[in-house]
């Protein structure tokens, strides 16, 4: 794994985080902290600010105000160090569709300055089950396989923190099962994962901490072991309705 500054208490920490687009306030004085090695699942209706939160934490977007520390590094001063320590999977593939999977991974390996890139690509392809597809162009793959390569791109540099923003979007049931299996098997408590999703069943099954985002704030935050599924579903539905 990359060098981290994990003498600090949290893998991810946001303090009084605000993000607005013009007059539209999306994240409103949001505070959150994520423990090292935890699997945090964030639920929230469309427009609740899930993707904006991930984009801000992952340095894709700049907060309007507030503080963010990822892997112990300050987002205002140490963006490059944060980028070394995170992997990001978004709705989009972040891959070049005219290049093969191998060429895409090789390009990102070079950009991350990885030693022994060929070996890393082999290893990643093994984890993602994409070994037989490395020489195929991205645009000639099924969406499920493209998503696996996208995850491969995100974990190629073996980041200690992984952001998954609705990784299930556009996948059929079978591809979804494989994707969750891959995320689960790749974690083993060593990688900190923050995942946004609409899938309550999977989110509750996989996460060890469950958070609900509503109106740009954390409105629900509990350890999975403390959650009764039926009660949670009821609470979640009322939270969603209150946002409408």
């Amino acid at each position: 794994m990359s060098n981290t500054n994990n003498n600090v208490g949290f893998a991810i920490e946001a303090k009084r985080l605000r993000k607005s687009f013009g007059s539209n306030l999306v994240l409103n004085e949001l505070d959150m902290s994520v423990d090292w090695g935890s699997f945090t699942v964030i639920f929230g209706s469309n427009g609740s600010g899930k993707s904006t939160l991930v984009n801000n934490l992952a340095t894709i977007s700049t907060p309007t105000s507030g503080e963010i520390y990822v892997a112990g590094f300050d987002i205002k001063k140490e963006k490059a160090l944060i980028r070394k320590n995170i992997g990001v999977v978004t709705h989009e593939l972040l891959l070049y569709s005219d290049l093969t999977a191998y060429e895409n991974l090789f390009f990102y390996g070079k950009m991350f300055n990885l030693p022994d890139i060929e070996h890393k690509i082999e290893l990643t392809a093994e984890i993602t089950g994409a070994k037989d597809y490395l020489r195929k162009k991205i645009k000639h793959m099924s969406h499920g396989m493209q998503k696996r390569i996208a995850i491969g791109r995100a974990i190629l540099h073996d980041p200690p923190i992984l952001f998954l923003d609705e990784p299930e979007s556009g996948l059929d049931q079978e591809a979804l099962e494989r994707l969750y299996e891959m995320i689960r098997s790749g974690q083993n408590g060593k990688r900190t994962i923050l995942m946004t999703t609409h899938n309550i069943d999977r989110g509750l099954e996989m996460g060890d901490r469950v958070t609900v985002l509503s109106k740009g704030k954390i409105s629900y935050d509990k350890k999975r072991v403390d959650i009764n599924r039926d009660v949670f579903e009821g609470d979640y539905i009322s939270l969603r309705q209150s946002q409408l």
């Binding site: 490059a80 980028r83 991350f112 991205i138 791109r153």
Partner: peptide, 18 residues
């Protein structure tokens, strides 16, 4: 435009390079 294909510009910006 080729960098916007599949959002790869974001992939590029997520790399730790200047």
């Amino acid at each position: 435009v080729i960098e916007h294909d599949q959002g790869s510009i974001i992939g590029l910006l997520l790399t730790p390079v200047s």
